[in-house]
Amino acid sequence: MTTETALSYPGPTPTATGEPPIVRGLLIALALAFLTLFLFVPLAFVFYEGLKKGFGVYLAAIAEPDALDAIKLTLLTAAIAVPLNLIFGVAAAWSIAKFSFRGKNLLITLIDLPFSVSPVIAGLVYVLIFGLQGWFGPGLREHDLKIIFAVPGIVLATTFVTFPFVARELIPLMQAQGTEQEEAATVLGAGGWQTFWRITLPNVKWGLLYGVILCNARAMGEFGAVSVVSGHIRGATNTLPLQVEILYNEYQFAAAFAVASLLALLALVTLALKFAVERRAHAQQLFPEIHR
């Protein structure tokens, strides 16, 4: 890493705005050492521990019935929470970016709220409403309906923590694009939905996909909020991150890290997709007519 000989910073007078090679090398080494200690080693460790006892043990840990149930519940939760927040994100971005109204900035701040709330509190709020001592607790009990310590609670808590992802991506993007294209389509006789599907959606598709990818990663990986409302019932209300906790607390480290490595793989796929989509989105912004 210190053998770099190319100019550090492309410019007309590199010596005036660049550092001596020795300083440059030291800074790069220090930055990489920090990232190695805090990022790369923990990531490698997950896969190492998961595979340490051999591939057979690894597969057995993942194919175990409780683990499979956890995978199913995690997929189900994401399959409900992500579309809900996708529809919301599109609606919110359409109203905020295409129209002007009072209180818009307040609305944007409120949409951001779930990001600044502790995941534990995100779970707690639903216990306060639907739990046994909650507002609707007694009523739900009468009708034998369960939300807390059951799948609906997990879906609700996940929806809360992933709430802003899609809206957060779409609002600035659609604001930057303005309303001229949509107005032209409307004047030419296109209906509302036609304008949306044929003008707006193609213009924002990469930003939308970016939001969905981040939303999905968080939905599948959420731990704190889900932990509060789950009740940790094996095979019933256990998601993959909760399964990692249970196995770890039972000192089944190989199995815990095998399941954890599935989630780490998901994280790596997320980063790769994010990287690819970022480039497409950038290209679409610069050359909209080519990248429609």
Binding site: L43, E49, G221, V244, Y248, F257, A260, A267
Partner: peptide, 10 residues
Amino acid sequence: ALPTAVAGVA
């Protein structure tokens, strides 16, 4: 992108 529980155990 990494679930917090995975970071925790690692």
